[in-house]
Design a protein around this nucleic acid. Structure first.
Length: 740
DNA sequence: GTAGGGTTAG
């Protein structure tokens, strides 16, 4: 029975007055003893220490059983850093028995540093102690977990040397160790040589095959199992899910339902995650009603999987409802919904939920951070991003995802405009993955620092890191943001010739953007004709923009037609074309396009900008009047206009249709969302404070010119991120050198 | 005499 009261509220006299007697085996008494139940429910190191102290007082600590149980519970407890405590207990024991040694080995194998169990084993052997059949599964587990094949092979040698080669548990552990190290032939060999096998050893091998994509071999082994149990079914189903064979997974699930084995929690979680990953919402709903009918409806892990299903399939409200209806939530529940929001681009909702999580008693973990950092990056919420950085440094030291967390931080800082902070994180890293290098290269590219991006690339090569396709997207976009055509051409060639990487759509996109920007339309068209895939909207759009820059009306029309073919529902293409006509003074055509837009009932995505002040993200759309400090903001806008005019600023009205419709005549330019955000930034920060604005569309030329002057007039550094890149405005100039 | 192997958020 689970104890519902807190361990510390139980009087100690009641807890510890049994002492083992010789006639009664102590473990029977102790097992039924409250103190062990207390240990099992022990949630803090402090209460564990108290219980331990009681054990010492009552002499219970002298029994090997109690000690080994104490250590085991320390080591298995998810609630605190039990291993450290277990080690301290272990060190007080004069002559630990084999059980205690094994329990310590198990603890180390389960820890975040499984290799330490091998070290402990070495010290055990050097004391002249012998392993038994229980020793090896722990050691092999740590070799499997840490992918240390060589050590695993040595342990295999010891297994044979000490004569445990026939133990089924040891055997299965060996299979699992080889399988997880990717040595499927060795795993199969161990399996074939075993004199007896059971469903568990089959399953170990199946998992190995399936996780490496050898689903056929896995299925063959699975068919051979005479007495399939629920775990073996689950392993096979999840093998298909993991490798993306959703249809096969669903079919197998159906077979399982027809068999005499009933699915369990794990089956449902696996099948639901298959539905989520493959977007099979209808099937997911069927599974959901099955779950409700079979009494799984309040199972924590299953509800978490359902939340994942609904949020991944776009039914956020259903996901949210399930989340709110949970009587007990764990960290996975929070992470799943936060991740669901991020997945659906609901970044603000993700941040709000994260803040709610902090207010509740749930501590975020590395997974939380990995889904919340992209939300900060999108919103430009750098204050929260910095807070998370501190939290990671303090609380999540040495977590397994350290490298991806840092990479995520680099991305966040870069996208929030603080490229220096991004660089600092990068430099502080001891082990950089390819994606860390890529994130930093992308960061520099976004900020128009092409040279830094290329320096980093050569440093990366010197470190012996092989670039991938993504690296080259970074490098090519660095070229395109800085208008470096020749370098771009060289990189594009080198990518195929020297690195054997086949260019994808994104690579062609960067090159076509570069060519278009340089006015080399023929060459751009040639590239489109020779590339092996169809160009997407992004490519036509970049060419259309190039036409605007170079005033090429004729080509613009044909590009626009292509754009409308690829993205007929995207009003942006129509607006772009109408802007080009407006620039050329072709007002009839402008009117035609406007009529077309109205007929189709399309509205342009409103331009929105956000600015973070005191950890709060404020969003503005064009002509926005809903902000609580609306009057002050518009007052500031008027002041800005007066000062701009004084400084000689003449608005370029040719782009007046950028934000088409309602307010296009009056104030369409004056009240662009970035101006509102800047005005709000100016009134709510101290003089001299840097302002960072995030915009969902591209910044228009008019605002770009105005912002340059504003940075000078108000002596403010203004950093603006638009859809494509960063602009650093300072003292009347922009880092992009007007090349965008 | 107690313990050990295979499946389950990203």
């Amino acid at each position: 029975m689970m104890l519902s009261y807190h361990p510390l509220t139980v009087p100690s006299c009641h807890t510890f007055h049994f002492l083992p007697s010789s006639s009664d085996p102590p473990y029977d008494i102790i097992r039924s003893h409250t103190s062990l139940s207390l240990l099992l429910n022990c949630k803090t190191l402090k209460s564990l220490r108290k219980i331990h102290a009681q054990m010492i007082k009552t002499g219970l600590h002298n029994t090997n059983y109690a000690l080994s149980k104490l250590i085991e519970l320390c080591v298995l407890s998810p609630h605190f850093e039990g291993l450290t405590y277990a080690i301290s207990v272990f060190e007080t024991i004069q002559e630990p028995n084999q059980l205690i040694w094994n329990t310590m080995l198990r603890g180390h194998a389960l820890s975040s540093d499984p290799v330490s169990s091998l070290k402990l084993y070495v010290s055990m052997i050097s004391l002249g102690l012998l392993p038994n059949s229980y020793t090896f599964p722990f050691l092999l587990k740590s070799c499997a977990k840490s992918n240390t094949l060589r050590e695993g092979q040595q342990i295999h040698g010891h297994v044979l040397k000490f004569g445990y080669g026939l133990d089924l548990y040891v055997h299965t552990s060996l299979i699992s160790m080889y399988a997880q190290n990717g040595r499927l032939e060795d795993a199969q060999q161990v399996f074939d040589r075993s004199s007896h096998r059971d469903v568990v050893s089959y399953t170990a091998l199946i998992t190995g095959y399936a996780s490496r994509g050898y689903t056929q071999s896995a299925q063959k082994m699975f068919d051979e199992i005479p007495d399939k149990d629920v775990v073996s079914w689950n392993a096979m189903i999840s093998g298909y899910v993991e490798t993306g064979y959703y249809k096969e997974a669903f079919e197998l699930f159906e077979d399982m339902m027809k068999s005499n084995v009933s699915p369990d929690e794990s089956t449902m979680v696996t099948v639901l995650s298959a539905c989520a990953q493959s977007g099979s919402i209808e099937l997911g709903r069927q599974v959901h009603s099955w779950i409700d009918d079979h009494g799984f409806g309040s199972n924590l892990k299953i509800v978490n999987a359902l939340i994942d299903l609904y949020s991944k399939c776009g039914e956020v409200a259903t996901a949210c409802g399930l989340f709110e209806g949970m009587s007990y939530k764990d960290v996975v529940s929070w992470n799943t919904l936060i991740g669901g929001y991020t997945h659906m681009s609901l970044y603000k909702e993700a941040l709000l939920l994260f803040q709610e999580m902090l207010r509740s008693n749930e501590s975020p973990n590395d997974v939380t951070m990995l889904s919340i950092l992209p939300a900060c990056a999108h919103l430009g919420a750098i204050d929260i991003g910095r807070w998370i950085h501190v939290y990671i440094a303090k609380k999540l030291k040495g977590v397994t995802n350290a490298s991806s967390l840092r990479t995520s931080l680099i991305d966040m800082y870069a996208k929030c405009g603080d490229i220096e902070a991004a660089h600092q994180v990068f430099n502080s890293m001891l082990h950089r993955s390819l994606s860390s290098w890529n994130a930093m290269i992308f960061g520099f590219a976004m900020h128009g620092r092409a040279n830094a991006a290329f320096d980093l690339f050569s440093r990366m090569r010197k470190n012996g890191i092989e670039p991938d396709g993504i690296t080259f997207v970074g490098l090519l976009s660095a070229c395109s943001h800085s208008g470096m055509l020749d370098l771009g051409r060289r990189i594009f060639r080198s990518m195929t010739q020297d690195y054997n990487i086949t260019p994808k759509l994104e690579h062609y996109g960067c090159m076509i953007d570069l060519l278009g920007h340089s006015g080399l339309f023929n060459e751009a068209k040639e590239m489109i004709n020779t590339m092996p895939m169809e160009p997407d909207g992004v490519i036509w759009c970049s060419l259309l923009k190039a036409c605007k820059t170079h005033g090429n009306l004729e080509l613009a029309e044909s590009f626009a037609q292509n754009l409308m073919k690829v993205e007929p529902e995207n009003p942006g293409s129509y607006v772009l074309l109408s802007n080009i006509y407006a620039t050329a003074g072709e007002w009839n055509k402008v009117a035609k396009i406007r009529a077309l837009l109205n007929n189709k009932g399309m509205r342009k995505v409103p331009g929105g900008s956000s600015i973070e002040i005191n950890s709060e993200v404020h969003e503005f759309i064009i002509g926005d009047k809903v902000h609580p400090r609306n009057r002050e903001i518009y007052g500031m806008l008027e002041e800005m206009e007066v000062l701009l005019e004084k400084a000689g600023f003449v608005p370029d009205t040719s782009e007046v249709l950028q934000e088409i419709e309602e307010e296009w005549k009056e104030g369409a330019l004056r009240h662009h969302s970035e101006k509102l955000a800047i005005a709000f930034g100016l009134i709510s920060t101290k003089p001299g404070t840097k302002l960072t604005i995030v915009k969902n569309l591209r910044i228009c030329r008019n605002c770009h010119e105005a912002t340059k002057l504003i940075s000078k007039i108000y002596r403010r550094e203004i950093i603006a991120r638009d859809r494509a890149r960063f602009h650093h405005f300072r003292d009347g100039v922009c880092s992009c050198n007007d090349c965008w």
